[in-house]
Design a protein around this nucleic acid. Structure first.
Lengths: 241, 241
DNA sequence: CGATCGCTTCGGCCGTGCGCGAAGCGTCCG
DNA sequence: CGGACGCTTCGCGCACGGCCGAAGCGATCG
């Protein structure tokens, strides 16, 4: 019952041509400003603003304000999958779909992004750390709380070293496949290095994919207080919301 | 470009609450009459008729007239998947979804329906035989063409025996998982028997699922002029349409 | 600290399309 | 062959919602 009404609402939101164009414009995973989206959807700025409000309200897109800009992006991979499935029904899948479908499953599960962790694993770690209050993400940056400093120190991470120099210490990085944030910066690199040296994850031979070892799964699950399976295959987002 | 317009059209079609209720009413795979759907969607008969016309036009539902009734059903598994994905986005998946997701993959690929073949295999066979003009489906019944009689005779099927008695000879049977037709009746049983005795398929131990042997895949692919992989995992429907 | 910029809110116009009652057409039954 | 039944088409009323111009708000920059 409640589900039917929600579904009708979602369907009506995506049913509008202009809103659909907005969603399609965001399907490459990038975040765009309202003005940009207004141009891409071929509507005036006020109209786009109204549409974006509805898309936000229905949780199809998410927003992150940065200064006087607001960057909009697809809220979750599930939304992207919905649009792709609708494209498939609408006829031959568009070229864009093909690319998105061909993501290597191993890369999507866990990989490195420069020197830190990304993919479902990276996002799950960021989720858990945020949920436990060890890190907090603000606008375009993040910070480590007092409990977080103790947490990472107990792991043996040298935070002073990680925060050294001109490098940003803790910063949310938009995950390409998950369309949500993982942790970059010196902290992300230090945590990734710890996982590697502890044998929790292994680098794949000739890819940025990483594999979580059985011991690593157990250790990370206990460390973060989450289900081990959810680390690389789950949808912890729902529970967090 | 063309794809965007098609997608917008599909989205607007499913975006209407009444049409969505119609689709949801059909999600169990059963075919229903217009009047039934009008009641389930809580709208008057003329309104439902208009909605059904749009749903037909956009190929989201299919219809088969039987006497003075018209039975509507979900057009393809892809459409069902679309509705399910939208439900997932809308919030907690409805109970109906769960059931549909839990279909045994082996059963969905190939199984017996009483004494004939069903699942993707059964539908692929029916598609191919119809495409090659060996069988033809009319309203609720089907018949074997002249070329079809020669085709089955060459296989060694005794059509006289299969058509014996009061049993219907060749009849389309709505496939539970594919929501499209496979071949039932004496002909369907005879063909299934031939596949078994030739070793093309094997019955699963304690399930109605059947497995296609490597030789069977080759033999059936050549016999029907289709890709071997498509027999149990493909989407030949698109090419046929 | 005023100017500029990005975005949202407000107000009013207008078109699309959903809704139903009544009538028309084809099918089945007694 | 007449009546019942199922479905569709026609016609019209009505309301919801998209659309934009102008104004308001907050933030940034010189």
């Amino acid at each position: 019952m409640t589900s039917e009404a929600d579904l009708a609402w979602i369907a009506s939101v995506v049913g509008d041509p202009a809103r659909l164009r907005i969603l399609l414009s965001l399907m490459d995973g990038r975040a765009r400003t309202a003005k940009e989206l207004a141009f891409l959807a071929r509507i005036a700025a006020p109209t786009a603003s109204g549409h974006l409000a509805k898309l936000l309200d229905s949780r199809l897109v998410a927003v992150e304000p940065q200064g006087r800009h607001r960057y909009f992006r697809i809220a979750s991979p599930l939304v992207a999958q919905m649009v792709e499935t609708m494209s498939a029904v609408a006829g031959d899948a568009s070229p864009g779909d093909r690319r998105l479908r061909r993501i290597d499953p191993a890369l999507a599960a866990a990989r490195t992004c420069y020197d830190h962790l990304a993919g479902r694993l990276g996002v799950a770690i960021a989720d858990a750390l945020q949920a436990r209050g060890h890190v907090a993400f603000g606008d375009g940056s993040g910070e480590v709380t007092a409990s977080g400093r103790a947490f990472f120190a107990a792991l043996g991470l040298d935070l002073a070293e990680a925060g050294h120099g001109r490098r940003v210490f803790c910063k949310p990085c938009l995950d390409w496949t998950e369309r949500r944030h993982h942790i970059a910066g010196g902290l992300g690199a230090a945590f990734c290095g710890h996982c590697l040296s502890a044998g929790w994850i292994r680098r794949h031979r000739d890819s940025r994919a990483v594999e979580v070892s059985p011991e690593g799964r157990v250790a990370l699950a206990e460390l973060l207080g989450v289900d081990g399976q959810a680390l690389t295959s789950g949808w912890p987002e729902r529970a967090a919301a």
